[in-house]
Simulated assay, not measured.
Amino acid sequence: MSSKVEAQLSVPHPRETTDLFGHREAEAALLNAYRSGRIPHAWLIGGAQGIGKATLAYRMARFVLAHPDPHSPAVLHAKNLSVDPSDPTARRIAAEAHGGLLVLQRTANDKGVMRTVITVDETRETISFFGSTAAAEGWRVCIVDTVDELNPNAANALLKTLEEPPRQSLFLLISHAPGRVLPTILSRCRRLPLRPLANADVIKAASRASGLAGNDPALVEAATAAEGSVSRALTLLGGDAVKLHTRTAAMLAALPRLDPRELHALGDALGGSDKVALATFVDSIERWVGTCMRTENPNAELPRLARLAEVWEKISRAARDTAEYNLERKPLVFSVFGMLAEATR
């Protein structure tokens, strides 16, 4: 494994990330709402994958739990939501040991396999969490990462808590596709859309996360191809990932037409066990599907969008199985493009 790939795999989790690149307007909106003393109890932080939504959510949670009084001098004079990493609140959140923060996210099942959804049993934890006696800090914060992964029963369970929020409760819901969030949940949230990062911010963030110099040619190339996503830039840093992404994107643009020779070549390019190559391929597919879901006319194209959403679920499961069991990559390539071709005809 190259040093670049090793750097990517050591990227800190958003709960440990204290730097925020870009999104200053969104950060200011959260800060101003908090110190007004009338902050909405639920926020839907939406935008493309890998642009810093979770980082912003944890940054807000950290600030609120570190400064429980919105009228305190520390809040009134704050220029942003930063909290010193040595602050006890920051350390406890980084260690997943803060009693005032609940995080809903996908977990592993009894066999150690990551679930595809957030379950209703996990979501019901919000009832006991918000129903318990307030922590010493006074606030209870729940981060849902992501609301897109709630199964229907879990979404309904969350909705019950959103409908009757306890005092000093704050929900930070993260979504890669906010347009597909249940209307009943949307109606109870303040929407906070985040735009893809500027290329300069992607370079800064990827440089900080990977340890590479900001003018490193590979990093600059990956950031340019990442379209505002730091996680995508870090994925593209590995090996020939940028070329692989370009090849995949060209084949997606030609759909529903398929070229068997190109499919064979792409399958060979994925290799036998290169995790970065597989991640790049899946990310390219997800980005393309996400773009289709956001740009198609929802009224005129509902059947087509429904087919694409269904196909993406199948692709996602197949990709996870391929990675987990180290299956051959070429059958996955043929299966993925076969499904996409059928869905786009």
Rank of each mutant, 00 (worst) to 15 (best):
L186I: 13
A241Y: 08
T18V: 11
E27C: 00
M251L: 14
E122C: 02
A97Q: 12
C292F: 08
E342N: 12
P193Y: 02
G211V: 04
T17D: 12
E262D: 13
R287Q: 13
L212C: 04
A28N: 13
V311A: 11
S3A: 15
G46D: 04
E164L: 09
H23I: 07
G100E: 06
S72V: 09
P196M: 02
S132F: 06
H176T: 13
A155R: 02
S128R: 14
E6Q: 10
I285V: 15
T123N: 00
A205P: 04
N80Y: 07
P88V: 13
H67Q: 05
A225Q: 13
L192A: 12
L270P: 05
Q49E: 15
K275S: 13
P217N: 02
I118L: 03
Q105G: 10
G267L: 05
R307D: 09
V147K: 00
L252T: 09
F129V: 02
N199G: 14
A29D: 01
S229H: 00
F171I: 05
T116D: 11
E25D: 15
N153A: 15
I51Q: 03
D240T: 10
T295Y: 06
S273T: 15
L9Y: 07
N199P: 01
L278F: 12
G271C: 06
R195N: 04
G179C: 04
M60H: 01
A323D: 13
C189M: 06
R190I: 01
E296H: 03
T246I: 10
G112H: 02
A254N: 08
I203G: 07
C292Y: 07
T235K: 06
E301L: 11
E137K: 02
T184Q: 12
R208T: 06
V230L: 08
L327N: 02
F337T: 11
P303T: 04
G37S: 08
P260W: 09
Q168K: 15
D274S: 10
Y34T: 07
P256N: 00
